[in-house]
Design a protein around this nucleic acid. Structure first.
Ligand SMILES: Nc1ncnc2c1ncn2[C@@H]1O[C@H](COP(=O)(O)OP(=O)(O)OP(=O)(O)O)[C@@H](O)[C@H]1O
Length: 929
DNA sequence: GGGTTCGTAGTTTTT
DNA sequence: CTACGAACCC
C-alpha cells in the first residue's frame, strides 16, 4: 500500500462498493438533521485527517498509465503552470492527457472533490470517470466533479441560486427544454399579438426562442442586461426579427418573466444565470474557487461566450496551487452555429490567463497515414487553416481508404451493408468497431432499413433525446407538477388533459378566465393550496398505494382527502362546469397529493410508478391507438422507472456545494440514511428493490432548501438528470447488446473513434451542407472542419461514399442528381493511392471548381451532371438492402478493382486510376439482381 | 368533448 | 414518405 500522508480529508461514510478508504467515523453524525444542510452547523464540518491509500494495483496502474504517455503528453499532463492550454489535433491523445492529469493530481494527494472536469457530453464524463475508476478505484473517482457545462451549472445553481438577488428562483427550479421554451414563447406571442393564427404563432415563437438563445450564447449574461440594438444586430436571426418586431426585447423579457414565474430555467439560462451569480455574489464565487482547485476543460474550441466566462469566474486564479487546464483543437471547431467561439481557445485564453503555457501534441495515435492524409487534404481545401499543425501518424501501416461511387442512396446503404458483412466475416472486424457517419439525421433511414433486413445489429446514436419522447415528456411533467404543483404552469398545461379527464379546451378556457380575473395563473388557481395541504401520513398512504398497484387506478376515496375546488369555482363564478370536469379536477389534485406523499415517504421510483398508474397514463398508452408505438413507449416508461430506482446514477454527487466546498458531501449522508433504512421492516409495496429515503419529521413542507434529503427534495435532481441526459436508454446490457454497428451524425461522432468508418453522402450540398437559398455566403469552413472530424474518426479503414443521385427523403421518384463533394478532389489527391470504385455504370467526375472558391454553391439538386445514357436499362439493384449474395454484384468489384488494400499491407502507390471517373467497375450480370 | 380524416410541411448540426 | 396538426364529424 502506498500511503499519502498528511492529506486532509473529510468524513465519508462507506459506500456500497468502497473498500480502500479507511474511515474515521465522527460521533454524533448518525442521524443528520435536515436543516443543517443549508447552513452547516460547525460541527458537521470538522475535518478528519486520514490517509487515502491506493492499493498496490491501483498505484501501479496509475504509474503505468503516466508512463504510456509520450514526452509531449507527459509534459502537458504534469505541467504545473496555473494556466495550461493544450492545442492538438485529432487522435493526439488529448483525452488521454486529461485523464492522466487527473490521475496525476490524485496521486499527488489532491482531494478528488477538488477537481472539476468539464467535458462536452455527459457520455464523455462517464467514460472519463470509468477510466479513472479503473486506475484509481471507484471510491476516489466517484467524488471528482465532472459534467458538461450545463450540468455543472445546474448543480451550482441548486446550491446558490437563492442567493442571487432578484433571480426569483428557488433551488428546486425545473429545467425547461426547447419544447417548454417554445410553449412559453407561444404564450408571449399570444399575449402580444392575440390574433395571430395558431400555426403562424407557433412558428414565430420558435423563431424568437432560437434568436434569443443565439443572442444569449453570444453575450455572456444578457438575461439581466438591457438589450441594445447592437446586441440584436450582432445576431443574424435576431436582427431579422427585430426589423419586423420593434418590440422584440419585450418578447424576450416577458418570456423570461413567465419562465421565472414557473420556477423554470431554460438551457441558456443555466449558463447565463450561473455567470450572473458568480459575478454578483462574491461569496459563491469564492467558495467554488476554494472547492475546485483544479479545473480541466475538454473540447475547449467549442465553448461559447457564457461558458468561457464561467471558466474565468471559477478559475482558482487567486488560490495558490490551483490550475486551469484546457484542451482542444481549433480545426475541430464545429459548433459555431450555436454560438461557440473558437477564438476562446485560439487567442482569448492567452490574453485572460496571464502566464498561460501552451503545449502542442503532434503525434496521431489513432489513424494510419493515408487516413490522416485524406483528412488533411480536405482541410487544405481553400487553404489550410492558419495555425494548423501537421500531424504525424504513429501507427505503421497504410490501412485502407476507398472511395465508392454508387447510383443512389439505397444502393449506398446496400453497399455499406454488404461491406460490413465482409469486414465481419473476412477481416474479423467486430460490429462495434464499425460506424456509419452522415451529415444529417435523415440520412440514417436507408441504413437502418438495409441493416435491419440484413440482420446486422446496429444502434442509432442521437435519435430523439430520451426526455423529448412524448411519453417521457409527459411523465416528467407529472413529476414537475408533483415537485412544484402551484408553480409549474407549463407542466400543468402539458398534462392537465393527458390522458383525457374531461378538462378540454372549453373548460380550460373558463378556468383560465377566472385565473386571469384573479391575477394568478392556472397552476396557482388549481393547485395553489397544495403546499398547505398536509401530506398523507404513512397509515393513510400505504393502503392507498397498495390499492393503486392492484387496481392500477386512483382509488376514488383519495379524491375526498382534499377540497373540491372544481365545484367551488364553478359555483362562485357560474362556470357551469360539467360533472366530468369536476371529477377530473378532483382526480388530478388527488393524484398530486398522493404523488407528493409518496415522494415524501417513499422514493422517486415509487412516485414515478404511482403517477404512471394512478393518472391512467400507462393504461392509455396500453390501450390507446398508438399501434406499433405502444411497446416502445411502455419500454421507455420502464426505463424511466428503473433509472429512478437507481439514485446513485442521478442523486447529487456533490450534494450541496455550499458544504462540499469544504469537502463534505451531503450525498454521503443520504446514502447513509438509505443504508440504515434498508434494514427496517418496511414493506415495499410498489417496488421491492427500492430503499426508503429518510423522512422528515414534519410533513407538509416542501423541501427546497433541504438540498435533497426527503424524497420530494430529490425530485429536482432526478428531473435534472433526465433532462440533461440524451441517452438514458443506453442501459449497459449484456456484452452481446454492445456488439452493434453505430450510426450517427458527424457532430455526434466528435471525440469517438472506430476501426472502420463509412462516411456516406459525401456530396456537394450535403458535405458541405447547403440548403436551398442559403442566406448569402455562409462561411463553409465549419462544414469543412466537420468533414475533417468525420474522417479522423477512422483508425484502420475509411470508406467515402458518393451517389449519382439522391433523394433526401428516400422517395425514389424524387431523386435529384448529385455531385461529389468539392472536398473529394483534395481528399483523393493527398491520400496517395486511394482506391476508387463505382458500382453503377454511370460515370461521374469531380466537379471542376476552383479549390479556393466556396462560392460555387452548386447544391446537389442543381447543376445536373449529364446523366450517362449507358445507365439506361442497367436498372440496377432495387433491393440492395436485403441479402447481398456472396459472389454477387458487390463482390465482383474486387476483381476489377485496381487495388485491394488491407490493413497493414495497405495500398500501393501508383496503381490507381486517376481521374477517378475512369475507375469504373463493370457490372456483371449478377444472379439475384 | 373526443375521435377520425385529411392536408401539409419537413431538408442541419445539440447542451 | 411520414409525422404532426387542424379542421371536421360524431
Ligand atoms: N501515448 C499513447 N500511446 C498509445 N496510444 C495512445 C497514446 N496517446 C493516445 N493514444 C491513443 O490514441 C487514440 C486517440 O486518443 P484520444 O482519444 O485521447 O485523442 P484526442 O486527441 O482526444 O482525439 P480527438 O481530438 O479526435 O477527440 C486513443 O485510442 C488512445 O488510446
Amino acid at each position: 500500500m502506498y500511503a499519502h500522508s498528511g492529506l486532509t480529508c473529510w468524513l465519508r461514510l462507506p459506500s456500497s462498493r468502497g473498500i480502500s478508504l479507511s474511515l474515521v467515523q465522527r460521533p454524533g453524525l448518525k442521524a443528520p438533521a435536515t436543516k443543517s444542510f443549508k447552513s452547516p452547523s460547525k460541527d458537521l464540518n470538522v475535518p478528519i485527517v486520514q490517509n487515502i491509500t491506493l492499493s498496490d494495483a491501483q498505484y501501479k496502474k496509475t504509474q503505468e498509465y503516466l508512463l504510456s504517455l509520450n514526452e509531449e503528453q507527459h509534459k502537458a499532463a504534469l505541467c504545473s503552470s496555473p494556466a495550461v492550454r493544450v492545442k492538438a489535433g485529432p487522435g493526439s491523445g488529448k483525452t488521454r492527457v486529461v485523464t492522466a492529469r487527473v490521475a496525476h493530481l490524485l496521486s499527488q494527494g489532491i482531494s478528488s472533490s477538488g477537481i472539476l472536469v468539464i467535458t462536452f457530453t455527459n457520455k464523455a464524463s462517464e467514460e472519463l470517470k470509468e477510466r479513472l475508476g479503473h486506475l484509481l478505484g471507484t471510491n476516489v473517482a466517484k467524488d471528482i466533479s465532472t459534467g458538461t457545462f450545463h450540468s455543472v451549472c445546474a448543480r451550482i445553481l441548486r446550491s446558490y441560486i437563492e442567493d442571487l438577488p432578484g433571480a426569483k428562483l428557488k433551488s428546486d427550479f425545473t429545467i425547461f427544454d426547447r419544447d417548454d421554451s417554445d410553449k412559453v414563447m407561444r404564450q408571449v406571442v399570444d399575449s402580444f399579438m392575440g390574433d395571430t393564427p395558431a400555426k403562424e404563432a407557433n412558428k414565430l415563437a420558435k423563431e424568437i426562442v432560437s434568436a434569443y438563445s443565439q443572442m444569449r450564447n453570444q453575450h455572456a449574461s444578457l438575461h439581466d442586461v438591457k438589450i441594445t440594438s447592437s446586441h440584436l444586430d450582432s445576431c443574424n436571426s435576431a436582427a431579422g426579427l427585430a426589423t419586423k418586431f420593434r418590440n422584440l426585447p419585450n418578447f424576450f423579457s416577458e418570456y423570461t418573466r413567465l419562465c421565472r414565474e414557473s420556477n423554470g430555467l431554460d438551457f441558456d439560462d443555466l449558463l447565463g444565470v450561473t455567470v450572473a451569480l458568480l459575478q454578483k455574489v462574491p461569496q459563491a464565487r469564492e467558495e467554488l474557487q476554494q472547492r475546485w482547485r483544479h479545473i480541466l476543460v475538454d473540447e475547449f474550441q467549442d465553448t461559447n461566450s457564457a461558458q468561457y466566462h464561467l471558466v474565468k469566474l471559477i478559475s482558482p486564479s487567486s488560490v495558490s496551487n490551483g490550475s486551469v487546464f484546457v484542451v482542444g483543437d481549433p480545426d475541430q471547431a464545429i459548433y459555431e452555429w450555436r454560438g461557440a467561439n473558437p477564438e476562446n481557445m485560439e487567442n482569448q485564453f492567452e490574453l485572460d490567463f496571464k502566464g498561460c503555457e501552451t503545449m502542442f501534441l503532434n503525434c496521431n495515435y489513432r489513424s494510419f497515414a493515408p487516413i490522416l492524409g485524406a483528412a488533411e487534404g480536405v482541410l487544405s481545401h481553400g487553404g489550410m487553416p492558419k495555425l494548423h499543425q501537421p500531424l504525424m501518424a504513429v501507427r505503421e501501416g497504410l490501412g485502407h481508404v476507398e472511395h465508392v461511387h454508387v447510383e443512389h442512396e439505397r444502393e449506398e446503404a446496400g453497399w455499406v451493408t454488404s461491406q460490413i458483412r465482409q469486414l465481419k466475416s473476412k477481416e474479423g472486424s467486430k460490429y462495434e468497431d464499425i460506424a456509419v457517419l452522415y451529415r444529417t439525421n435523415l440520412q440514417s433511414r436507408s441504413f437502418e432499413e438495409s441493416l435491419t433486413s440484413a440482420r446486422i445489429p446496429f444502434r442509432v446514436l442521437g435519435e430523439k433525446p430520451f426526455w423529448q419522447r412524448s411519453e417521457i415528456k409527459d411523465m416528467t411533467c407529472y413529476l414537475r407538477l408533483t415537485s412544484n404543483p402551484s408553480v409549474d404552469v407549463v407542466a400543468l398545461n402539458a398534462i392537465i388533459n393527458t390522458p383525457s379527464r374531461g378538462l378540454g379546451a372549453k373548460t380550460l378556457e373558463k378556468l383560465q378566465n377566472v385565473a386571469e380575473a384573479q391575477g394568478v395563473n392556472l397552476a396557482q388557481l388549481l393547485m395553489g393550496d397544495m403546499r398547505k395541504i398536509p401530506l398523507l401520513d404513512k397509515q393513510t398512504l400505504e393502503p392507498l398505494l397498495a390499492e393503486v398497484e392492484m387496481t392500477k387506478l386512483l382509488p376514488d376515496r383519495t379524491c375526498d382527502l382534499l377540497p373540491d375546488i372544481g365545484s367551488t369555482l364553478s359555483k362562485e363564478h357560474q362556470l357551469k362546469l360539467n360533472k366530468e370536469a369536476i371529477k377530473g379536477l378532483k382526480q388530478l389534485r388527488a393524484l398530486v397529493l398522493l404523488a407528493r406523499s409518496t415522494a415524501y415517504h417513499r422514493t422517486v421510483a415509487g412516485t414515478v410508478k404511482v403517477l404512471e398508474l394512478a393518472s391512467g397514463y400507462r393504461q392509455s398508452v396500453e390501450e390507446g391507438s398508438q399501434g406499433d408505438n405502444a411497446p416502445k413507449k411502455l419500454r421507455n416508461l420502464d426505463i424511466l422507472h428503473s433509472v429512478a430506482g437507481d439514485p446513485d446514477s442521478w442523486a447529487s454527487r456533490d450534494g450541496d456545494l455550499r458544504n462540499t466546498a469544504k469537502g463534505f458531501s451531503s450525498q454521503d449522508l443520504i446514502s447513509a440514511s438509505g443504508g440504515t433504512g434498508r434494514g427496517l421492516a418496511e414493506v415495499e409495496m410498489l417496488d421491492g428493490e427500492e430503499r426508503p429515503l429518510q423522512s422528515e419529521p414534519s410533513p407538509g413542507m416542501n423541501s427546497t432548501a433541504g438540498g435533497g434529503v426527503s424524497g420530494l427534495g430529490q425530485l429536482p435532481w432526478f428531473l435534472q438528470h433526465v433532462s440533461l441526459m440524451r441517452e438514458l436508454d443506453e442501459l449497459k446490457d449484456n456484452a452481446e447488446a454492445q456488439q452493434r454497428v453505430s450510426l450517427m451524425t458527424l457532430h455526434t461522432s466528435k471525440g469517438l473513434e472506430f476501426r472502420n468508418v463509412f462516411f456516406v453522402g459525401f456530396e456537394d450540398g450535403i458535405v458541405p451542407l447547403i440548403r436551398g437559398q442559403d442566406e448569402g455566403a455562409r462561411n463553409l469552413d465549419e462544414e469543412k472542419r466537420l468533414a475533417y472530424v468525420g474522417i479522423t474518426r477512422a483508425m484502420d479503414r475509411l470508406y467515402i461514399l458518393t451517389a449519382t443521385k439522391r433523394s433526401i427523403l428516400g422517395i425514389p421518384s424524387q431523386r435529384k442528381p448529385a455531385t461529389p463533394s468539392r472536398y473529394l478532389k483534395r481528399l483523393l489527391l493527398t491520400g496517395a493511392g486511394i482506391k476508387s470504385t463505382s458500382t453503377s455504370s454511370g460515370q461521374f467526375s469531380l466537379h471542376n471548381n476552383n479549390d479556393n472558391d466556396d462560392n460555387d454553391n452548386s447544391p446537389f439538386r442543381g447543376r445536373a451532371k449529364k446523366e450517362p445514357s449507358s445507365r439506361q436499362g442497367v436498372r440496377t439493384v432495387t433491393s440492395v438492402g436485403s441479402a447481398v449474395k456472396p459472389g454477387g454484384f458487390y463482390d465482383t468489384r474486387k476483381e476489377n478493382a485496381t487495388i485491394t488494400g488491407t490493413r497493414g499491407t495497405g495500398v500501393s502507390k501508383g496503381t490507381t486510376n486517376f481521374p477517378i471517373g475512369t475507375a469504373n467497375v463493370k457490372k456483371k450480370a449478377s444472379n439475384g439482381w
